[in-house]
Structure formats: structure tokens, C-alpha cells
Amino acid sequence: MRIELQGVRHVYAPGTSFAVEALKGVSLSVEPGEVLGVIGGTGSGKSTLVQHLNLLLVPTAGRVLVDGKDALSLDRSELRRRVGLVFQSPEQALFAPTVEEDVAFAPQRLGLGEEEVRERVGETLELLGAGHLAARSPFALSGGEKRRVAIAGVLAMGPEVLVLDEPTAGLDPHARSDLIYLVGRLKASGMTVVFVSHDLDEVAEVADGVCVLEGGEVRSIGHPAEVFYGDPSMAPATVRVAAALGVSRPSLGTPVRYGETLAALRRVLGAAP
């Protein structure tokens, strides 16, 4: 499924003295099978933007197209099943006595049979490395486990696009790398992922495309190497090292991910990569 935003504007509380224009005409597309990283500071419009992908927010002006069709013409609940949105701090929405029941909530609402629900819940928890937690209370889990269970609750609906809004905020470094690894596995399984973060280093590890928002507008968009090397002030540490060194060494190339950068620096040092 391909989602396209065309000149999307969004004004909160329009027509009042509190009106705020959070998006000022944003155009971009989410291509099937890609991991799109959306980055930008607090207040840049990231969360407002992603809520347009499944029409939780309706644009004040502009259009959202799903496979070329105006999203407003589509069935809203079906759209929200196909585009699964995981909010910031999603563990706050955990509510059931056990992990299994919590993850089963959405598939049950979809009207699936008991057997199929159980199967889906099992598969989803397995995929997230949380199978062993099925019978536990979601409230007695660690921060990273809770986060994964909350994501499982959205994945169990069988979405085509998964939108993660700041999925690593507040987690310890290991839980963060687990989540980044998970995004890689979802991509490998054919899922389209929109990954919102203000941590450039983690976006660099997973994104096929990057969109930088600033003040409600797209500041740059494209392949990570293009975007980051075009403006090293908004780039992850790997790119800043290579950019600082690369001026005199074109052979360094434009590495973005950690492994690529390490290999490129080793080449410069004259060691076997």
C-alpha cells in the first residue's frame, strides 16, 4: 500500500485565537516495503503528520491518497486496520489482565474467530520475542517489554503499514537496540514502517528514506545519505565523523549506518575492512 500526502495543512483549533498551524503544506509519499524515518525537533509537526496517515486527523487543506484514491472516500475503520498507528508511550493503553488478552483485543473487534485470534496473538508475540510473556500481567513487565506488547496489540490487526511514534523514548539502551532490530525484522517480512524519532543515530540504522520536518514544513526528504550529507548539522554521529574527514578523502564515500561507517574508516586507516 502506497500513501501519498499532497500539500497537507493542519490547523488546530481553527478560527479561534488559539489556532496553531501545525503542518504548513506537507507533500511526501510512503512507498510499499520501505522504512521511512521522520525526524525533527519537538513541535516540528511529526506527530500531527503521522496521524494523517490513517486519518485520525483530517487535513485542513490538501489530500491524503491511498493507492491513488482519496483516503476520505475509504472506509475509515478499514483504513485504520491497514495503517496501524502506535502512539508515543503506547504502554499507557495496556489494560487487560494478561498480555495475551491485551493483544487479542483488536483482532476480536475485527470479528475474527476464536481460533484465528489465538493464532494471530501467538504469532505476533513470537515475532516480537514476547511469546514467553503471554500469561503475564502487562503491568508487571519492564519498560521495554511493555512497549513491545503494546506494539504487538497493533500488529495483531494485520496492518500493511506500521507507524511508530517515538517508539524508543524512555527505554534503556538495550531495549532501544532490541526495538531497532525489530523494525529491521518487520521490514524483512514485507511490512512498510514509518518510524518517528528525534534520535538521528537510530533513524540512520533502519531508514531507507528520511523526511526532516521543521516548523510544520518538509526541510528535506530523500535517501538518508543525500539528506544527511546535504546538511551534516542535522545528521547522525556517523555522518558527522565521515563528513568532517571526507572533505579531503573522496574515497571515504557517504556511509550512514554504523557498520558502513566503521568499514569506511578502517579503509582510511589502511587496515583490511
Binding site: A237, R240, V241, A242, A243, A244, L245, S248, R249, L265, V268, L269, G270
Partner: peptide, 15 residues
């Protein structure tokens, strides 16, 4: 910092 590391790599590299 990235700059410190870039300088350290430059110093150490053959070229």
C-alpha cells in the same frame, strides 16, 4: 565529538 574522531583518524591514516 565527531570532529575529534575525524582528526584522530586523519592523524593515524597513511595518507
Amino acid at each position: 565529538t565527531p570532529e575529534e574522531l575525524a582528526a584522530a583518524v586523519a592523524r593515524r591514516s597513511r595518507d
